[in-house]
Design a protein around this nucleic acid. Structure first.
Lengths: 205, 205
DNA sequence: GCTAACTCGTACATTCATGTTCAAGTTAAT
DNA sequence: ATTAACTTGAACATGAATGTACGAGTTAGC
């Protein structure tokens, strides 16, 4: 990471507390800024973080370094959320759990990934994005195999529908068009219905 | 429009054929470029249109003029498609008609709107976007009133779901992840199921 | 054939963003 | 109290994009 080194790299004292606070503030500001506008300037990020541009450059050598750090942190968050999910058992319940727990993370994830792709190239993010696709894909396949999810449409399309609507719900919440408290419920109802096999009854939730 | 004047503005002959061809080529290139990257440069647009940058500036005084022209043309196309749709009768069939006929237009529309919003401001596009929202909204309301669309979710959310998935399907087609021939069918199946009231059977299509 | 519309590359001015350098003040940690 | 880590604005260099100006060649339409 482009930020100042930890004790491991120098045999002196660890990074100062105000430096650590500033690094987090910069990463927070960069995350918000990049999702809003992938071309957000370094000056704007620094201003929103409440630090000088020079200070930002003290922690991140280049813009690409900063974006890389944002990407790494975002991926870490996403993995933390997904690793904590129990997606075994009834696929419909697992889908509800997945959707309710991760719609926020998905939106951050895709927003940052989009910005990072422009900055760092698609290669850098392909493998990390695939991880989430794979997890959701396995759930969809399991549901299709058990006959509780429709199999007249390919799993890849259903995965796209799931991720896209989670992203959309989060954007609507950010835009004030949807209450955060409603997002999970709306998503679960919409997606469970969308995945219900033709000829079957849409579950009441 | 920022392009060269028609006969109406000067009492000389109409715009030359090669000039009209170039204007269309520029608008086509700008539409593609803006959807790909809202910050696409004037130089790139001109190159893709196969004209000189100076020629482009001969037809459009500024970048904002060009974006405005792209917006106007895109809106015109969308209206032409929507005006030609018969959305009366069975709401489920009407939804299928809407989706099958306009997923391509929706993607163009939203891509250009997004780019135009950054360039021209959100005010300029609010009223044009509302028209399509209104038409889709009326269909959703009719379906809810007739009991064939779920009413445990607000119409505004269902409209968002419809438009978002059409946009997504078109993006997947552009990206090669989805065959164009499959897009309409996948969308219809997914959306009809998503809108089926809980406790009802998902229609087989 | 004539002529005005149309086209063009190069050069230029301006603006903005990135990244670097400088000296010096502030402050966290010992 | 000390000191090294951390912070800072201004100035600067570089590159990229927008928009303008120039003279001149091309061509569509009459």
């Amino acid at each position: 990471m482009g930020a100042s080194t930890s004790t491991g790299q120098r045999t002196q004292r660890a990074q100062r507390a105000d430096a650590r606070r500033n690094v987090e503030a910069i990463l927070d500001a960069a995350t918000r800024g990049l999702r809003r506008d992938p071309n957000v300037s370094i000056a704007d990020i620094a201003a929103e973080a409440g630090v000088g541009r020079i200070t930002l450059y003290g922690h991140f050598k280049t813009r690409a370094d900063l974006v890389e750090a944002v990407l790494a942190r975002t991926i870490g968050h996403a993995h933390a959320v997904f690793d904590g999910l129990d997606l075994s058992g009834d696929p419909v319940e697992a889908l509800a759990t997945l959707v309710t727990s991760s719609w926020r993370v998905i939106e951050q994830h895709r927003g940052v990934l989009g910005a990072a792709a422009r900055e760092l190239g698609h290669e850098r993010i392909r493998d990390v994005h695939d991880d989430i696709l794979t997890r959701v894909g396995h759930l969809v396949e399991r549901g299709q195999a058990e006959g509780v999810f429709r199999d007249d449409l390919p799993g890849s399309w259903l995965v796209t529908v799931i991720l896209t609507l989670m992203h959309t719900a989060a954007q609507d919440v950010d835009a004030g068009r949807l209450a955060a408290a409603d997002a999970g419920l709306y998503l679960v109802r919409t997606l469970v219905a969308a995945l219900t096999p033709p000829g079957s009854i849409v579950p009441v939730r």
